Computed example of a mutant assay.
Amino acid sequence: MRLSDTGDKLDTHEYPATRDEIIQAYGDSTIELPNGTETLKAVLERIADDVYEGPEDARTAVFTGVGHEAVGRRFYSDRDPTMPGESGPEPVSF
Score class of each variant (00 low, 15 high):
residue 86 E to A: 03
residue 38 E to H: 11
residue 70 A to V: 08
residue 93 S to K: 13
residue 56 E to I: 07
residue 22 I to V: 10
residue 92 V to N: 01
residue 68 H to V: 14
residue 88 G to S: 04
residue 59 R to W: 15
residue 54 G to M: 01
residue 35 N to M: 05
residue 15 Y to G: 03
residue 57 D to Q: 13
residue 72 G to A: 08
residue 10 L to Q: 03
residue 52 Y to Q: 03
residue 49 D to F: 12
residue 64 T to N: 14
residue 43 V to T: 05
residue 15 Y to L: 09
residue 46 R to Y: 07
residue 22 I to M: 03
residue 91 P to M: 03
residue 41 K to M: 02
residue 85 G to K: 08
residue 74 R to P: 12
residue 90 E to Y: 13
residue 94 F to M: 05
residue 67 G to R: 09
residue 56 E to G: 08
residue 24 Q to A: 12
residue 73 R to V: 02
residue 52 Y to S: 07
residue 51 V to N: 05
residue 86 E to M: 06
residue 84 P to Q: 09
residue 85 G to L: 00
residue 30 T to D: 04
residue 44 L to T: 00
residue 67 G to S: 06
residue 90 E to C: 12
residue 35 N to T: 07
residue 5 D to I: 02
residue 72 G to R: 12
residue 23 I to G: 04
residue 51 V to W: 09
residue 71 V to D: 06
residue 92 V to C: 06
residue 65 G to T: 09
residue 69 E to L: 12
residue 33 L to P: 06
residue 28 D to Q: 08
residue 7 G to Q: 05
residue 17 A to P: 05
residue 88 G to H: 02
residue 39 T to D: 04
residue 80 D to W: 11
residue 48 A to N: 15
residue 72 G to M: 10
residue 88 G to M: 01
residue 61 A to V: 04
residue 45 E to F: 08
residue 5 D to S: 01
residue 81 P to E: 00
residue 53 E to N: 14
residue 31 I to C: 07
residue 13 H to E: 01
residue 88 G to Y: 01
residue 56 E to W: 11
residue 40 L to C: 01
residue 48 A to R: 15
residue 1 M to F: 15
residue 63 F to C: 14
residue 85 G to F: 08
residue 4 S to N: 15
residue 19 R to L: 07
residue 56 E to Q: 13
residue 83 M to R: 15
residue 86 E to I: 00
residue 75 F to W: 15
residue 47 I to M: 00
residue 14 E to V: 07
residue 61 A to K: 05
residue 4 S to T: 10
residue 37 T to N: 01
residue 15 Y to F: 12
residue 42 A to C: 03
residue 4 S to I: 14
residue 30 T to V: 14
residue 61 A to Y: 02
residue 11 D to V: 04
residue 89 P to H: 05
residue 40 L to S: 02
residue 89 P to Y: 00
residue 29 S to T: 03
residue 8 D to M: 13
residue 45 E to W: 04
residue 23 I to Q: 01
residue 5 D to C: 06
residue 17 A to G: 07
residue 65 G to R: 10
residue 42 A to M: 03
residue 67 G to P: 05
residue 42 A to F: 08
residue 65 G to S: 08
residue 10 L to T: 11
residue 89 P to R: 00
residue 26 Y to N: 13
residue 3 L to D: 05
residue 18 T to E: 03
residue 78 D to G: 06
residue 17 A to H: 04
residue 24 Q to W: 08
residue 36 G to P: 01
residue 74 R to E: 04
residue 93 S to M: 12
residue 21 E to A: 05
residue 13 H to P: 00
